[in-house]
Design a protein around this nucleic acid. Sequence first.
DNA 1: AGTGTCTGCCC
DNA 2: ATTCTGC
DNA 3: GCAGAATGGGCAGACACT
Length: 594
Amino acid sequence: MSRRPSAFDALMSGARAAAAKRKSNPEASPSKKRKSAESKPPLVTNGEKAAVDSVKPELEMEISSTGNGTADAASSDAKQCDPVECVKSDAAEEPGAKKPRAMTAEERRAELKSKIGSLKKKPADFDPRSVACWEDGERVPFLFLFLCLAFDMISNESGRIVITDIVCNMLRTIIKTTPDDLVAAVYLSANRVAPAHEGVEMGIGDASIIKALAEACGGKEAHIKNQYKEKGDLGLVAKESRSSQSMMRKPAALTVAKVFDTFRIIAKESGKDSQEKKKKHIKSLLVAATDCEPQYLIRLLQAKLRIGYAEQTLLAALGQAALYTENHSKPPPHVSSPLEEVITGQIIFMIHLKKNKGYFEFATSITSNDLEEIQNFLEASVDGSCEGLIIKTLDTDATYEPSKRSNNWLKLKKDYMDRWDTIGAFHGRGKRTCVYGAFLACYDPDNEEFQSICKIGTGFSEVVLEERSASLRSKVITKPKSYYRCGETINPDIWFEPTEINDFSCFSVKAADLTISPAHQAAVGIVDPAKGISLRFPCLLCIRDDKNPEQATSSAQVGQCPNKMPSGMIKADDRKLCPPSRCRMKLSMESCAV
DNA sequence: AGTGTCTGCCC
DNA sequence: ATTCTGC
DNA sequence: GCAGAATGGGCAGACACT
C-alpha cells in the first residue's frame, strides 16, 4: 500500500494555503505570460516563494485537469495544446515581442548548450536568467532539465556540493522564468510521478520499454535486447537507434510539462489494452525526442537515472533554491510534518488489525548484556525459524524512529557460508557494463549435475569483478552442458565450462538463509519433488583460486534442511558480539530499519 | 478458464 | 535485502 | 557515515495470450 513518507514528500507537501489560492484562480493559463497574467506584487521574490510553496497544490491541479479531461488518452493529449506552439503564437500576436523571429529548434539547442555551463557557478554568483533561452512563461524545454542533470553537467561531477549547486541553479532558473513548470521539473528530476505515499507507479519495466523501443525504431526486440546487453544502458540504445521512419514533420520540441503529463497519463492507464496504450505514449515521446532526450526519457521510465544524483541531492538543492528566492519569515501553514504522517500510519495500522481480528502480543525477549547468553538466544530463535533478533538498548531513550538507522535498535541475524561453483553469468548494466553483473552459482550433487542455486551480484569489488569477468570470459561455451540443471525462468547470458575443466576457482558465498525455490534447482527432489533450494541474500565473500580446494558444498549437505545448514565459517563483524572462536556462525549486526 | 509474463514491492 | 565507492 | 548505484529471492496482482 502506501509507503513511508519521505522527506521529499514532506517538502513537496508544503503550503496548502497556496493551493487554495490557486484553486480559486484556476484560469491562470500556463501558456500565458506570467508577468502580466498574475500581476502579483512587483517584488519578484514573492512570486517565487509562491512557486516554491505551491509545488504540491499545483501537482494536484494538474492531476485533476488531466484526469477530468477525457478518458481517452489521445484526445487528452490533443486537448493540451502544445505549450511551445501556444507561446510562439502568443509572441507573434504581441506587437512588442522582444524576439522578432522564433529561433529554430537547433538554434535553441545550441544556445542552451552554450549557456548551460554557467549553472556551475556558485549560487550566490548565479543569475537565474542567464541560461534561459526561453521566454518567461514559456514551457521549459525538456532538454534543459536533462542538459543540466546529465549532459556534461552532473554526470561529470562527483562532488555533492557542485551537483547541488547545479540543480539549485537549474531550479532557480525555472522559478524565475516559468514557475508553473516547477512541479513537473522537480518530479521529473526526482524521477517520480507522484509522492511516494500515493503509490502511483507507471507500470513500465524493461520489457515494455524494449517493446516500445523496437516498435519506435522499427527494429526487432531481440536486437534491442542485445544492444542493451552490449551497451548496458537502454537509454543509450534508444539514443543511438534513431527512428528509422523518416520524419517529415518534426513534432514540437519536448517540454518538461509535456513529459511529466505523459508520464502521469501512462501511470493512470489500466485495464484492457493498457499496456498497448502505455507503449503508444512512450513512442510518442520518443518520436519527439532529440539530442540526448531519448536517453533520459528511457532512463526516467526505467527509474534508473544513474547520474550520481537522486532524491537527497534534489532535496538539498530545492531547499537551497528556496533560500535564494524567498525570505523564509513564516513557515507555510498546515505543513504536514513527518511525525503527523507517522501517527496517521499507526492509526491505520490499528484499524487494520481490528478488521482482521488481529491482536498484539509481546515478543519473546530477554534482557542481557552477556554475549554468550545473547548468542544462545539467537540460536534458539533461529531454531525456532525466526530470522533473528532485534536488540534494543535500555540505556538510552531509544525511541523508534521510522526510516532512520541508529545503534539503539539493531538487527541480529545469522549467516550461512558456503562455496559454490559458477556455471553462468549475466551481462552487467550501468557501471557494470563490459563486465559480468552477476553470476549463476550452482552446486554439484555427486558430479552428475550442476544445479543452479542462486545468482550472485553483490559483494564484488570493482577489481574482483573485473578479474573474474576476464578470467571467466575464456571459459565461455555456447550452450549449457546437458548436465547443467537450472530453472526455466533463469536465462544466463553466458554459460561457462564446468569447473572441473577450469582452474578450480569457486565463490565463497554468504547468505542469510536457505529457501525452497520455485526457480532454482539445487537439491531438487530432496526437499521437494520439483522445487530446489536457493539462497537468501547471497553475497560474495571471496574467490577461492587455490588449485586444491576442498570440495564445494555437496548435495547432501544442502538438501538436508533449510535452517540446518552446516555453517562454514566464522567471521565476526566489525561490531563483534562474541569472540570469533566461540561463534558457530557469523553474527551479522546491522542497524535496524525495520 | 487457465497459463504465462511483467511489474512492483518486500526483505 | 547486501555491498562497494567517492566524498 | 551518507548518498548513490550495482545486484539477490520470492510473491501477488494485473494483463496478455491461448
